[in-house]
Design a protein around this nucleic acid. Structure first.
Lengths: 147, 147
DNA sequence: TATTGTTATACTCTATAACTATA
DNA sequence: TATAGTTATAGAGTATAACAATA
């Protein structure tokens, strides 16, 4: 049975990981001319294809007002365009520009590179246990923390 | 050898964990009347004991100006006090109020509770491998990502 | 009437720069 | 001259509320 102290130490390691990964990603995004919130919005557009701001707001879990600001910034910096919605004149369609698509491709590469780097030296058995441990924890959260 | 796809999936699980833990903690802090930035500052004061804003700024990795704002808010909401520094009339000492100390105690309990809950159902062997996997990844980051 | 997106306003966290008081 | 902290200003992300155009 793992001790309470050991569990607390493990959670502290998770927090440290969060901080360090956040710093690393933040630096990468800054080099690409993006902030975390804008990058998130950009990834949603890439995954869903051209979509309305309403869809974007729901996917990001933020208000419509906020999406207006994020899309404004992404348009100004050349990552996406606003186009008329063909069937609903109230709505707009947000689409990737060529630069936006290229940037998404780079982010995807960087993420794969990070994953390879992080786990490169980990023995296969430990990786499997680590991965399963992650799944266990996520299951607990989904079951008990109301997500 | 774990595949690139498996590693990418594991990293995605880490990201999901970050998001869910962040939401959970954010909710707890809000119930305590704190924001994440203020809670972080409060924890530093709790760990270091009464300290100057300069010390706080260095520990948090933010500017002195930012600390002024955070301490303003923590004073207004009753978590800390500003007192004269006995030896340096330029500086102030930030100290916990009784309410601040009680809140730190509650945060500490909540963190321990979360750690216990997250790992409660995990077999001992898997916990050990998971914990070692975390240490491995942190070592990689410290070694290769310039931290 | 309900929905899409905007403008108006405000709060939090963050930064740089200029300044005051003190060391 | 250097340091501690503040005021001034700015930008990013977030929110609510009121409103316009359209469904």
């Amino acid at each position: 049975m793992s001790s309470d102290a050991a569990r607390l130490r493990a959670l502290d390691r998770v927090y440290e990981l969060v901080v360090l990964l956040g710093e690393d990603m933040g630096g990468d995004l800054e080099r690409l001319g993006l902030t975390p919130a804008r990058a998130h919005a950009l990834m949603v557009v890439a995954e869903q294809g051209p979509c309305t701001q309403r869809v974007l707001a729901d996917a990001l879990g933020v208000t419509a007002r906020n999406v207006t600001g994020l899309v404004d910034a992404l348009v100004t910096t050349g990552f996406v365009t606003r186009e008329a919605h063909p069937a609903d004149r109230r709505a707009v369609l947000v689409s990737l520009t060529a630069h936006g698509a290229a940037t998404v491709a780079r982010m995807t590469e960087q993420k794969a590179g990070l994953a390879a780097q992080l786990f490169a030296g980990m023995p296969e058995r430990r990786f499997a246990a680590f991965d399963q441990g992650l799944a266990d924890i996520l299951a607990v959260i989904h079951r008990e923390l109301g997500h």
